[in-house]
């Protein structure tokens, strides 16, 4: 028997399955930003080409990139000759690559969508992205159902978080054995934390994109919290930290409140937000209480 939890989790996976593109405009779309590509794919419209396709499975992880999508190469060094030969109808850009617009406009019409925006409502930007792309690509219905499912899923995650009442979390990437990047501010991760009711223990400032680079000593605290590190973790980090009293005597380290999660696209959209929430909630639930 499916319980409600499994049912909603199943619903959450639905957008990742291939759909018939009946109402679709059938546009041939190239996406110059991963967040736009993953949103398109969630709407059931596979892009014909994306940037840095060869890195996708390592950093976005899910959904796996379907075969047959052309690799446009590095984001700052797009293969224009290849892009032109694919004869796209529409090229999706973001402010990060807007300097390329005059060039790619020689190939096809462009649509610039901002991935990132400082806002008060959590996840407002990923929602808007799904809606606008749904309208433009003829998947308005798919976009609506994606968003409804997403809200249900987040609501469910919120309940599950309330049930386990975990301590505040700190989200980091270990840069080397001495530095971390810690997340908060207006970034995607913080948006997800806000949406599912988790408290971020990082009180320091962050940059415009919602993270900050600090020495590991900055994480020292006597509070109870859970440190969540995203993969990959450099090879020398763990052994070095274990030998540091500053680290090994930290209350949350002694209590074993240190977790490792797979990589989640930081500059992602709704699919990455959903994936992050799922990884986080499922991980926290698996922990002994």
């Amino acid at each position: 028997m499916l319980d409600r939890r499994q049912f909603v989790a199943g619903l959450a996976m639905l957008p990742c399955l291939p759909r018939p593109a009946a109402a679709s405009t059938g546009l041939r779309v190239a996406a110059l930003d991963w967040a736009l590509a993953e949103t398109m794919m969630a709407l059931g419209h596979t892009p014909i080409a994306i940037v840095a396709a060869s890195d996708w499975n390592r950093f976005v992880v899910e959904p796996r990139l379907p075969s047959g999508i052309a690799d446009l190469g590095l984001q700052p060094e797009i293969n224009f000759e290849l892009l032109a030969s694919l004869k796209p109808d529409l090229i999706l850009t973001s402010p990060f690559v807007q300097d390329l617009e005059p060039v790619v406009q020689r190939i096809a019409e462009t649509l610039r969508l901002s991935i990132f925006e400082k806002g008060t409502v959590p996840l407002a930007r990923p929602r808007a992205l799904a809606r606008v792309l749904g309208e433009r690509l003829g998947h308005a219905e798919a976009a609506r159902s994606l968003l409804v499912t997403a809200e249900h899923t987040f609501d469910m995650y919120r309940e599950r978080i309330t049930a386990i009442a975990p301590p505040p979390v700190v989200l980091v990437n270990f840069i080397d054995a001495r530095h971390v990047r810690v997340y908060g501010g207006a970034g995607l991760y913080q948006n997800v934390l806000d949406r599912i009711g988790l408290v971020n223990a990082w009180a320091g400032t962050t940059n415009y994109w919602g993270y900050s680079t600090v020495g590991i000593e900055t994480l020292a605290t006597d509070r109870d919290l859970r440190l969540i590190a995203f993969e990959p973790i450099p090879a020398d980090t763990r052994p070095t930290l274990q030998r540091s009293p500053l680290w090994s005597r930290l209350p949350f380290v002694r209590a074993g409140h240190v977790s490792v999660l797979p990589s989640v696209l930081m500059f992602g959209a709704m699919p990455s937000a959903l994936r992050f929430a799922r990884l986080l909630v499922e991980h926290l639930e698996r922990l002994p209480r």
Binding site: E77, I175, D176, R178, H179, G215, I216, P234
Partner: peptide, 25 residues
């Protein structure tokens, strides 16, 4: 760095010499 930018954030820091320490080691 350009070809593998996502992995190499550490090199910017390393190339600019941070003295941050967490132990006497």
């Amino acid at each position: 760095v350009l070809v593998k930018d996502r992995v190499l954030a550490s090199l910017f820091i390393w190339g600019s010499g941070s003295l941050s320490q967490q132990s006497w080691e």
